[in-house]
């Protein structure tokens, strides 16, 4: 554990609390992509298969269960409690390509050609692009509630903070996991445009609006 990893995980936790807070206070999931949320459920379920056989480190296990539980809970809220506020028509990014592409990448790049290793690699590639339906929805609506942008920022910052963590571990422990690092860099690049608008507008107190 180092400061970058810890801050990354805290940022990930914060993103989920911000999302739940947004849904609860506005009583609406408008502007939130159901498709991205569903992809995160798939990411956590395939990443954390090792919950079935351990080893169960307390910190990791609590976090894994929380990520699975909260993402399923968000899907439930969107599907039932706040269904009418869901932007069904606009939230239509073709996730089949993201899932298919990630699966191909997992078949090509994995630590061993076994079910759990292919699923683990799949989860990393899928996570790297899982935000795309959300960013696509943002693009189509052209603007977003400030709290929604805070959610997306915290979620993006989490993986961005893992990059210095990997550099630190590479230097200090001599270990590096290329699949995780490469997918993590792709993930952070996917957020680049969003980060730019977030820093130049939202942080300055302006509304998140994309140029027409």
């Amino acid at each position: 554990m180092n400061i970058f990893r810890l801050l990354g995980d805290l940022s990930h936790l914060a993103s989920i609390f911000i999302l739940l807070h947004k849904i609860r206070t506005t009583k609406s999931c408008a502007g939130i992509s159901f498709r991205s949320q569903a992809l995160y459920v798939l990411v956590y379920l395939t990443r954390y298969l090792d919950l079935l056989w351990g080893p169960w480190l307390l910190y990791n296990t609590v976090m894994k269960l929380f990520f699975i539980g909260s993402s399923v809970y968000v899907l439930y809220l969107m599907k039932f409690d706040y269904k009418p506020s869901h932007d069904m028509g606009l939230d239509n990014f073709k996730v089949e390509y993201l899932i298919g592409g990630s699966f191909v990448m997992a078949l090509l790049f994995n630590l061993a050609f076994t079910f759990d290793e292919v699923m683990w690699s799949f989860s990393l590639w899928l996570e790297s692009v899982a935000i795309l339906p959300q960013l696509f929805l943002l693009q189509r609506t052209g603007e977003a509630e400030t709290i929604t942008t805070h959610y997306i920022f915290a979620l993006g910052a989490y993986r961005a903070l893992y990059i210095p963590n990997w550099l630190y571990r590479w230097v200090m422990e001599g270990r590096v996991e290329f699949i995780a690092v490469f997918a993590g860099i792709i993930q952070t690049i996917v957020y680049a445009d969003f980060f730019y608008v977030y820093f130049t507008k939202v942080i300055q107190g302006q509304k998140f609006e994309l140029p027409a």
Partner: peptide, 10 residues
């Protein structure tokens, strides 16, 4: 494989 960096991360 358990010792791979990514395996003890989230």
């Amino acid at each position: 494989r358990q010792e791979a960096t990514g395996k003890d991360e989230l």
